[in-house]
Design a protein around this nucleic acid. Structure first.
Lengths: 341, 341
DNA sequence: ATGCTCTGCTAAATCAGTTTAGCGACCACT
DNA sequence: AGTGGTCGCTAAACTGATTTAGCAGAGCAT
């Protein structure tokens, strides 16, 4: 990689000036008294030689690398990781930085390795990302430099970026109320573990809270709440079947995520019911399947790309210490209608 | 980040030896004549000081960075990107390397930026990845060092890693033949553009070829072939409906990917047909939805994680120049049954 | 005693930048 | 004439590693 690149000394020689002069000109240093002509000559020489500074040499002296570490627990499992990374990548590029990516897989040994690898390379800062919104403890070793938590919060009060799940809960409930649903709204996806342990999830509690708050204000109660051990399609399917076996059929279903909703659709289809004529469905995440379902599924989008971008901005431009909440936009789609009758 | 780290000079001083000695011992240089005692003292000193070499300084001298660039056209759009990256990450870690990730978004300006960023950092090699298996031309600038193409081939004969789509085509066809399907197999997802332009896709042609070859050998012809402008659920849905409107109903459907199959399921459900009793379905990719569908969808898995891993191995350990084909395993699931009657 | 080799180790150069300290020329002012 | 300040620029130190060249002393043969 990169064999015979021109060095600063080459540029200086060609410009007939010293390395010092060339360095100062190219770095646009203020307060230097180099003549306009010297500037010209240096720029011309650099241009002609296709000069690009050797970043290893520079960072040896300056301790800056224009590199950000992106350390996450698990990148691959969820499709959302890609968006988080893409947002970060974009924002990093705009600021002339680059992303060093490592993954801990939740394994302490790997985490140790990742941290050493990152510190050894003297990154300018670390984005510590979680794939499920949750609380976590940041390893002390990286606290020597700037750190931003992405999709996570920590007890240390580090700057962090998380989605506004509570707001999403309110949006979802409001959307149903506006359509006239009142006494027959059911919820699929209650989960004690997710709701009670912030190290597992922050989203479940916040979403539930937003929903409850909005319904309470409207003096509306939930018709039923189904607990699910996981938020996967099969659990949504089972929950929906159990709801349909009860005497009073719901007019609308809120699913805690799109995969549950997908399962609910399957059960509804088997039961010969149609969405949204018989039952409205609304959900969270905006997984790609939400748009692929028939009818398309209304949901609140996890703004992962935005979040990734925000994390880089907080890291490089500095920012408030309290968690930065990124709104989750409501995607109104075909699965919503006023209650039948 | 990393303020007061011990330097090699510190270690040497503590060991009562020169920097040269310390460097040689720590790098395990052969043929040096340093005493066993000197080794002991250096190791002890390094241990006590928690010494970690400054990689910027090292790579300034050696031109090695223990860093691999992962340049891709689009990371976020497809969920598979995550697996590609994860595989690469794992293999890189095993070899004590780290991944620098950039994205070109198919944009020439971004590509230029990515390449400069990568060259400036003197990476040890570049993995140039495409998100859809295709042929592409590698920018000349990165040819100065090792390059491996991932999920792509190039006219330059660079080492590359691609999935064995043709083999997958054969597996899919064989699976149906073994179940007894012969005269009523239909295909969804023909697409001239994908089949004819290797810069768009290599997969379509290879899959089709594998299918045809196997069916030909068994003297079996396709009942019908549906063309789709894209490989999205809605197109699978439309194709399936058109198939069902014809007099002879197929006994099995091959879909060119899982998203088409998802759409086909929707159409089948609406038509009141059940999979696999009425119609078997088999597909390609092993998208997560394949396992979520009811019944679960048989498909051939894109081995993205394996591929990412292989790319790193080829890059660092060297390897053959001809494309490295990674097998696509068949996932036998519920959507397959012998033809009815 | 001299020359030779081998052993165990080190001084100094090198990589390519940034940064500090300061030099010589010129001008203005007292 | 001497002093001080500004201007335009440079030499050299510095970052922290690797690597080349070579030194001092011991052992051995002649």
């Amino acid at each position: 990689m990169g064999r015979n690149r021109a060095t600063l000394a080459d540029v200086a020689r060609r410009a007939g000036l010293s390395k010092t002069a060339a360095s100062m000109v190219l770095n646009g240093r203020e307060g230097t008294r180099l003549s306009a002509e010297a500037h010209q000559r240096v720029f011309a020489a650099a241009e002609e030689l296709g000069y690009r500074p050797n970043l290893a040499a520079r960072s040896l002296r300056t301790r800056k690398t224009a590199t950000i570490a992106f350390v996450s627990d698990i990148v691959a499992t969820t499709r959302f990781a890609g968006d988080l990374i893409r947002g970060a990548l974009d924002a990093a590029r705009e600021r002339d930085h680059v992303l060093l990516i490592t993954e801990t897989q939740g394994d302490a040994t790997f985490e140790q390795y990742a941290i050493e690898a990152v510190l050894d390379r003297q990154v300018d800062g670390v984005i510590y990302a979680a794939m499920a919104t949750r609380r976590l403890t940041v390893p002390a070793a990286i606290l020597g430099g700037p750190v931003v938590l992405l999709n996570a919060t920590s007890p240390d009060g580090l700057p962090s970026v998380v989605p506004d799940d509570e707001g999403a809960g309110r949006s979802v409930a409001t959307a149903l109320l506006e359509l006239g649903h009142r006494d027959a709204i059911a919820l699929i996806g209650r989960n004690r573990l997710k709701e009670d342990d912030p190290e597992v999830s922050l989203a479940a509690r916040a979403r539930l809270h937003g929903i409850r708050q909005t319904l309470d204000e409207a003096k509306v109660g939930l018709l039923a709440e189904c607990f699910c051990t996981e938020w996967l399609p099969e659990h949504g399917y089972a929950a929906m079947r159990s709801l349909l076996s009860k005497p009073k059929r719901p007019s609308a279903i809120i699913c805690m995520n799109d995969r549950l909703a997908f399962g609910a659709y399957q059960a509804l289809g088997e039961a010969g019911l149609t969405v949204p004529e018989d039952i409205s469905v609304i959900s969270f995440d905006d997984d790609p399947i939400a748009a692929w379902l028939r009818p398309s599924l209304a949901t609140t989008a996890l703004p992962h790309e935005q979040m990734g971008r925000r994390a880089v901005e907080l890291l490089l431009d500095g920012g408030a210490a309290e968690p930065s909440l990124v709104p989750m936009p409501l995607r109104r789609r075909r699965s919503l209608a006023p209650p039948a009758g």
